[in-house]
Design a protein around this nucleic acid. Structure first.
Lengths: 262, 262
DNA sequence: CGTCCCATTGAAACCTTTCAAACTGTGTGG
DNA sequence: CCACACAGTTTGAAAGGTTTCAATGGGACG
């Protein structure tokens, strides 16, 4: 019934990596032999429209990779902004912490997506970036990137596009948070994940949630109990098949109908 | 009690412009004699960090101004993206319309703020930009801007900053929509308006709302009745003095306390 | 095999919406 | 100049969705 396949060997399921819980800060830097040209995310990542000579220059900038263990922070609120990060494998959440200790998740980041775009202007990070599972990122020093962009129109354009599309994405989420019922939010969330998995070349209708019900609820502005109830309701309605974190979208049309307009 | 002063002669109160309701599309283009160097918004607008020789080149790009009558559209969902717009006077709302006809406001734009940043990537506008009152914008053709940015590091940097800060702003709003009660949302909204009026050099605690209760509610994800009730409650609590669209923040501290954390 | 984290489910409390009515200021037409 | 129409606002009462509090169940790891 729930033929959850191993979607990608590079992205272990959450189940398989439940460890290292109490040992954060396990971050290692190293210079990897893998360049953008041979990266499987080449088509969806920042340099996706760069040609061979420029791609090499870009490669020199992102020479450094970084591994982040599950639960560890790639950066924290208050850290000075020095680089953008492209997720190579794994997944991250961006989370703000209030003085009262309340957490609010502002985004999830999957392979091929970029972390840190909101920190360019204030020059400091305003959120924590926490790995949801053992992950790896490409470090893109911003000063060097900006400098290269000035002499590489294609890169400049791509950066403007990237920033702009991030704004679009956030505005879409604002619509979601501001005018949708909990039911619509969850349906929209599942469809969004589906699209993003598909974008990076994986199965669109069958995936493993990288985050807990609590994290989903936090992100969508509802409680974890509501998420749980809705998951059950969606399952009863035949829209999805869900077992723990394995999700199969059985009726994408139906989900889109729930989201309705927009 | 409510000593509502005429904040700025360039920005008439909404009361004074209640007309031309049924006559949209009243847009006129012209080349104004006012350059950025002599603009009163110079300190807060895009070219705020450009020096004299570059500022002139920039000025040549934004030679064109455009007037938009109350209720008219600066651009509409689906229009091809050709320019960014800086609000010179007046106010705009950005609004998405669903197939069902539901409207959702994604942002309000005051003088010195930029419209269209979300449309760079898709090359088409995804929302309608509607004038809340008779307004004027500076037209910044994007192709020319991008070209100048490539040869003007200061401009490129400023653009990256602008885009990035828009992302920050949206994420702040996501926090608001996703995890705040209606009470907190309205308090945060009023404080946000206050900050923005102050930024453009006006009184921070005494201003005229450019939008209806319905528009505020739509934007904040609650109903107009809720906004109305909360306004009354805030007034009874001595936090604000409100009469129609004239608002005075009597107890900024108290409002901030309501918003609480973040 | 026990512990712990995560997920599920129920019932009451709460906030917000919905539906409805009345009120206010503004602009129009007699 | 007044009466009317209308858009926007205010307020009430009932209905609805979501949260809160609480208890139970399930899977993974030591």
């Amino acid at each position: 019934m729930l033929q959850t396949v191993a979607i990608n060997p590079a992205i272990p399921t959450s189940r398989a990596t439940t460890r290292a819980k109490g040992s954060p800060r396990l971050i290692s830097d190293y210079r990897a032999g893998v360049g953008c040209a041979s990266c499987c995310l080449q088509g969806v990542c920042l340099p996706s429209n760069l040609e061979s000579p420029e791609l090499d220059r870009f490669d020199a900038i992102v020479a450094q990779k970084r591994k982040v263990a599950r639960g560890a922070a790639l950066y924290r609120n208050g850290d000075t902004f020095e680089a953008l990060y492209a997720v190579r494998s794994g997944a991250f959440k961006s989370v703000g912490v209030s003085r009262q200790g309340d957490e609010k998740i502002t985004g999830f980041y999957l392979p091929g997506e970029m972390l840190g775009l909101d920190s360019i202007s204030p020059c400091r990070h305003s959120y924590d970036a926490i790995a949801l599972e053992d992950s790896e990122v490409c470090v893109i020093p911003y000063a060097a990137l900006e400098q290269m962009a000035a002499s590489t129109p294609a890169l400049q354009r791509q950066l403007f596009r990237l920033l702009s599309s991030d704004i679009s994405r956030d505005q879409g989420l604002m619509l979601l948070l501001g005018s949708m019922s909990a039911e619509q939010r969850l349906a929209a969330f599942l469809l969004s994940l589906s699209r993003r998995f598909q974008r990076m070349g994986f199965a669109a209708n069958c995936f493993v949630l990288r985050m807990t019900r609590e994290e989903i609820g936090n992100y969508l502005g509802v409680t974890l109990e509501t998420i749980s109830r809705l998951m059950s309701r969606f399952q009863r309605a035949g829209l999805i098949a869900v077992q723990q974190r394995d999700v199969e979208l059985s009726d994408v049309e139906g989900l889109m109908e729930i989201v309705g307009h927009w």
